[in-house]
Structure formats: structure tokens, C-alpha cells
């Protein structure tokens, strides 16, 4: 019987003494370690607060901020028809990736909602199907860039923690493009897995089968033959210069 008993928890779980705890979302709970209100120490049970679950403000300062950027300048045009999400390449893969909803959240300054989507919100692949089809010429594809900038500005820690792997892959990708002027998918794949600490997966059956298949149809050799683009060092300099400027332009004031 003793073995079945749960081990004693060293720290209390968030809001565990709330009777209807299942009705409160984690992010709506606030607990301070040492809280003093009006000179009274309210540590312990009394310092659990449940945030309002109702939206009680439309923060338009946010909308104005987005509107000032080059990529987000048409945010005022959106009337939420959903053509962007309907035409999106990514939504069928990530249901939670919804450009229409993200634009709306930006319009209403609903950072609390946006925060829920930090992991997927910047999965836009930049195919521009949405921008091509948008009846109001909102340019949703670039609006997703505005969103990414905004998430980076307002939620730096979340981006840091939730998008750690993505940042690593991005660096490998950037280095590869800048270094060689070419994308070598095989290298990107192996390097990324290794960088994420999943190097062992390269020896799994799926990977082995894939490599065998590529050797068989000859693709493996063409991959190995991929070198630098000719005269790349000149292009590289120009691109680096351009990127420097873009970084300056994109920054939200």
C-alpha cells in the first residue's frame, strides 16, 4: 500500500486549494512568493489570485504601433472574412495557425490571446497566397511578419524558451545560405537534428531507409556534389549589407 502512495510534494501545486481548480486555466492564476498588501503579509493561501477571464480592454496603442511599421501598415483594412486562413498553406498542417485570428488579436491589442500562440504564430512560410487573395489588400503574409516582430518585442522570454530549437535551425539555415549561396537539405536535416540533441535519430530505421533509397536513385551523390555558387563571395557581401539595412528597417520603433 505504501508504494502506491504518491510521493510527498515538496512544493504546493499552483492553486491546488481552489475547489473548482479544473475551471481555472493555469495562465489565469497568479501566486506571489512573499506578498505584502497595505503592510499586511499575505503569504500563503491568501496570495492566490485568479485573473479576470473576461477581456476588459481594447488596447489600441498596440494597433497604432503595428500600423506604423512597413509590414503592418494595412492592419486597419482587415474585416475578418477569413480568406487568408482559407488560402493558407500552413493552417492545414497547424490548425492553430490562423492569420485571420492573429490579425484580429492585433487589431484589438489582445496580447493575452496572442501569447497563447507564440509557438505557432510565426510558422508562416511566406507563400503569399493570402496576400494574393485578400479582398481588402491587407497583405496578411507581411502582417505575419509584423506579428513575429511584435511577439519578439513583448514576449522575449517565451520566444527564448519556446522557440529555442527553431532559432538553432534558423541559424544553421542562415549560415548555409550565406556561406554557400545554396540550400543543402541533407546537411540542414542532419545538422539540425544534431544541434537539437537528437543526433541518435539519424541512425533510426526511417533515416537508414531514406539514405539507402537516395543512394539507389542517385540523389545522395548530387547532394554530396553541391558546392558553393560561383562568385558567391561578392553576392554574399551584398546580401550581408542588405540584411544589415533590413534589420534597421524592421525594428518596431
Amino acid at each position: 500500500m505504501d508504494r502506491e502512495k504518491a510521493p510527498k510534494r515538496p512544493v504546493a501545486e499552483k492553486g491546488e486549494h481552489i475547489i473548482a481548480r479544473h475551471m481555472v486555466e493555469d495562465e489565469n492564476l497568479r501566486e506571489e512568493k512573499n506578498l505584502v498588501i497595505d503592510g499586511v503579509d499575505v503569504s500563503g493561501r491568501w496570495n492566490t489570485f485568479i485573473l479576470s477571464r473576461v477581456d476588459s480592454d481594447f488596447d489600441r496603442s498596440f494597433f497604432r504601433e503595428i500600423k506604423k511599421t512597413v509590414v503592418g501598415s494595412r492592419i486597419n483594412r482587415c474585416w475578418q472574412c477569413g480568406m487568408c486562413t482559407a488560402s493558407c498553406t500552413v493552417t492545414p498542417l497547424y490548425r492553430r495557425f490562423n492569420p485571420r485570428a492573429y490579425i484580429y488579436m492585433m487589431q484589438l491589442g489582445n496580447l493575452r490571446e496572442i501569447k497563447k500562440y507564440i509557438d505557432v504564430a510565426w510558422r508562416c512560410v511566406g507563400c503569399y497566397k493570402c496576400s494574393q487573395k485578400c479582398p481588402k489588400q491587407v497583405n496578411p503574409a507581411e502582417m505575419m511578419e509584423a506579428l513575429a516582430l511584435l511577439i519578439k518585442k513583448y514576449f522575449p522570454e517565451e520566444v527564448e524558451s519556446k522557440l529555442k530549437d527553431d532559432e538553432k535551425v534558423k541559424k544553421i539555415y542562415d549560415d548555409m545560405i550565406l556561406g554557400n549561396g545554396r540550400l543543402n537539405l541533407a546537411t540542414l536535416h542532419t545538422k539540425s537534428l544534431r544541434e537539437m540533441g537528437r543526433g541518435m535519430e539519424l541512425f533510426s530505421k526511417v533515416e537508414r531507409d531514406a539514405i539507402f533509397k537516395m543512394i539507389k536513385d542517385g540523389r545522395a551523390f548530387s547532394v554530396l556534389m553541391l558546392g558553393k555558387s560561383s562568385g558567391w563571395s561578392k553576392s554574399r557581401k551584398a546580401i550581408e549589407k542588405y540584411l544589415k539595412n533590413v534589420e534597421g528597417m524592421e525594428r518596431i520603433p
Binding site: V54, D55, S56, A101, L108, N110, E113
Partner: peptide
């Protein structure tokens, strides 16, 4: 109710 975000609002 904001029917697009499916959430209640109480805005002054």
C-alpha cells in the same frame, strides 16, 4: 461575446 475569438468581453 467576441464571436471571432470566442471570448467574453466587458469593455468600458
Amino acid at each position: 461575446e467576441d464571436t471571432l475569438l470566442r471570448g467574453p468581453f466587458e469593455i468600458p
